[in-house]
Simulated scan of single mutants.
Amino acid sequence: MNEVEILARLRHQNLVSLYGCTSRHCRELLLVYEYIPNGTVADHLHGEQAKPGSLPWNTRMSIAIQTASALSYLHASDVIHRDVKTNNILLDNNFCVKVADFGLSRLFPNDVTHVSTAPQGTAGYVDPEYHECYQLTNKSDVYSFGVVLIELISSKPAVDITRHRHEINLSNMAINKIQNHALHELVDPFLGFESDSMVRNTITEVAELAFQCLQSEQDMRPSMEKVLENLKRIQGENGYSENTEEVEIPADEVVLSKRDPPPLSLDSVNVNGICWETTPIASS
């Protein structure tokens, strides 16, 4: 129900579309989303679909920008995702991003500075200040996105217990490498960091941006809007171009009033004994 309430308010080309849900009177509680066929970013970086050199840097930049665009839109719509990770970033056959899994997401009132709640999320991505102080803000998503940026740079998982104990968390490894001017030891060797000056310059700037996102204090991190702005600047300055045209949808045109519950269904149908309710969301 949390996912339905959140997604009924939103529409963005880089958010997975919710097609419908079962009736609340049905025994089986199911959500139906658009099918995204090409797996997750995690699959392509260090999972079953990972192959050396198969995900070039320009594609990774595009993934970073599209993900940042989706998160920036969420924050403008007063929603905190709270579980940003490469396993929740889906890819279509053209490697276009669809951010998914809103089970932990929270609506964030625009008249408060934070929401006090028990820390939830995935190990390796959880904002340390949120974990320590139980105060959730949109900067918690920024921290998690910083880990995603480091994954895109390194092709390493966010947590790996086979690494040295000080480097089990990828965020710790990245901060140490960047501070010690050893970024080359972190970068995926198949990205051309050593041989291509444009790739080297771009990765270096993205690493510096990730470093800002990974600051332990929330106030030290940039906003998601600023992160997106910087990624686009880095991309433009280094001669890369997006493969897809971005369509911005103003948040005030698609976000429903928080005072009114979203219309969860327009119609009901019965399929194989399951009563389905379709949501008022059109596929983009």
Rank of each mutant, 00 (worst) to 15 (best):
S72N: 10
S154N: 05
I36C: 00
D101R: 10
G236W: 10
C275Y: 08
T244D: 08
F95C: 12
E151R: 03
G146Q: 00
A76D: 14
L228A: 13
T122H: 10
V112S: 02
E34R: 09
I153M: 08
A210E: 03
D188L: 06
S105T: 02
V147H: 05
E245N: 15
S23Y: 06
V142Y: 01
V16N: 05
Y73G: 04
V206W: 10
A68Q: 08
P52E: 10
I63T: 05
V255Q: 10
D252K: 13
M173H: 01
Y143C: 01
V254S: 14
L264R: 14
W57P: 06
P52I: 05
A182V: 00
E48D: 12
D111S: 00
E248P: 03
L136W: 03
V159W: 01
T40R: 00
V269A: 09
E217M: 12
N270Y: 05
V147S: 08
S72C: 15
C133A: 15
K51P: 00
L31I: 03
Y19N: 08
P119V: 01
K156P: 04
C21I: 00
I6L: 13
N94L: 09
S62N: 11
A42Q: 09
I161R: 12
P263I: 14
Q49H: 08
N180Y: 07
N138R: 09
S223N: 12
E217P: 05
F211I: 00
D101A: 07
H164F: 05
V112G: 06
P128Y: 02
F108Y: 14
Y125A: 02
Y33I: 03
P56F: 07
D160A: 07
F95V: 00
A64H: 08
M61K: 12
I178R: 12
P128V: 02
M1Q: 06
N176D: 07
V147Q: 01
Q120R: 11
A251H: 14
